[in-house]
């Protein structure tokens, strides 16, 4: 059995590559690209140390920013979502927040969907705000956030279903 962190590292490398090479080139409706790599932060075990998780979030975001030549959007969005995750988990999963693998089993599906949706929405909102960096584009930011969140949500739920059916 491969240790969790080694598996997570390989899984991160794969998702970062997929994100920069494929998902960032989709341009649905001319602008929408799904943020599939947020899956890393959604599925990271709930019972592990938050300190390491913040470092992982920063590293993943920075790598993506360097690969996709974006100006810090991925870094700041990933960092924030990782930092806020305990709050989102408590809000979305309620009393089940301490189940380590709650994303696959042990939680009712509406709670699970709410958790995924909130993670994506907040991540995407911060990412768009950093990308535009101006309140003059407020409505464009909202539009990007909504479309990208829906697109990412569909893909991520599909991927999670595939993964859980394999397990």
């Amino acid at each position: 059995m491969i240790p969790y962190f080694t598996r997570f590292f390989l899984y991160s490398a794969l998702l970062i590559l997929l994100q920069s090479l494929i998902f960032d080139q989709i341009n649905l409706f001319g602008f929408s690209n799904p943020m599939v790599y947020v899956l890393l932060f959604i599925t990271y075990r709930f019972n592990l140390d938050q300190f390491n998780f913040i470092l992982i979030g920063f590293a993943v975001g920075l790598t993506l920013d360097l690969l996709t030549q974006t100006a810090g959007g991925h870094t700041i969005a990933s960092l924030s979502i990782v930092f806020l995750r305990p709050v989102i988990i408590r809000f979305a999963l309620g009393s089940n927040y301490d189940i380590p693998n709650a994303i696959y089993t042990g939680v009712r599906w509406p709670n699970r969907m709410l958790y995924i949706l909130l993670m994506l929405l907040i991540h995407q909102l911060i990412f768009s705000l950093i990308a535009f960096f101006s309140l003059a584009h407020f409505w464009t930011v909202i539009q990007y956030t909504i479309v990208n969140t829906i697109f990412s949500f569909i893909l991520i739920v599909a991927i999670l279903n595939l993964m859980s059916s394999q397990k």
Partner: peptide, 28 residues
């Protein structure tokens, strides 16, 4: 508060990176 301090430090680093990466962000 080590998590929060780490978050703040990395956030500042991220904003600094954002400034060096793009002229638009730097001017803003």
């Amino acid at each position: 508060n080590k998590n929060f301090i780490l978050f703040l430090l990395l956030l500042i680093l991220g904003l600094f990176f954002s400034g060096t990466q793009s002229g638009y962000h730097q001017s803003k």
